[in-house]
Design a protein around this nucleic acid. Structure first.
Lengths: 131, 131
DNA sequence: TAGTAATATTTGTATATACAAATAAAACTC
DNA sequence: GAGTTTTATTTGTATATACAAATATTACTA
């Protein structure tokens, strides 16, 4: 179980990295950016929930996107809002294309149905392991 | 798929870390050590295959176990042999116990059958992603 | 057999992520 | 409304792993 889940995650990670190479972003950065474009002003807490990552990781991801001038942060009180820059918004079609490629890649290899089933299974297990 | 496989791997990793806490080793170190005890003089290349990790990672794992005086390395020519120390051999029962706990942990949560099915599925997918 | 190719391992450095502590602000509580 | 608790975010540091280059040795080839 231990090596199986790790090995699978690493393989998928690699495939995803390949898929997002055209936009020069890691999969996590790309997913985060797409969420920010979709929901302007989204807060880190919401990103934590959607991406299943910890707050510190989300901060790090945002920082990097800020460096690349793809997002800006505004802080009011204890909460922070994240917005996509025009530069990022222009990238949206390419981001979607990469996402599509990624999906095609693994669905071609595994079949659409089997892929869906596996994802469902993994989510179920992850939820059960929550505590 | 991307977040599902990553999230699952992280959850399992955490569960495994808990399980091996009693011996003060990370899951990867523990699995490697058990292989070395089982097959004295095993070479890094063989460990790479069994643990599904890269050569550099294997070197790092061995280094750490060497620091802890749990293994020794002998180099002859281009190849290296790894042996468990008496100290490590004495730990074997505890290592097995941790392995058992880990298995019990996730099988209790998921059920034995479902666990086995998931592992099979993940392995199948990982193999298919090989290229 | 000298020169090149293949194999095994290690080293330098990078990525993805997390935990725990720090900071800051808002929300309760009495 | 002063003091405490909760919530949101960031920062310092650590872990697990990988890639690419370096090193060393053995095997092949012409």
């Amino acid at each position: 179980m231990y090596f199986s889940s790790n090995a699978l995650a690493r393989k998928i990670e690699k495939l995803a990295q390949e898929s997002w190479k055209p936009v020069g972003l890691s999969p996590s950065h790309a997913y985060l950016l797409m969420l920010v474009i979709e929901e302007p002003g989204i807060q880190p807490t919401a990103l934590v929930e959607q991406l299943l990552l910890t707050p510190s990781t989300i901060t790090r991801l945002i920082e990097k996107l800020e460096e690349k001038k793809l997002v800006v942060r505004t802080t009011e009180g204890k909460s922070t809002n994240v917005y996509a820059t025009p530069k990022a918004k222009q990238m949206l079609p390419q981001l979607n294309k990469c996402l599509g490629h990624f999906y095609e890649n693994y669905s071609t290899i595994l079949g659409r149905e089997e892929s869906a089933r596996l994802v469902q299974n993994m989510n179920k297990v992850t939820d059960k392991l929550e505590h």
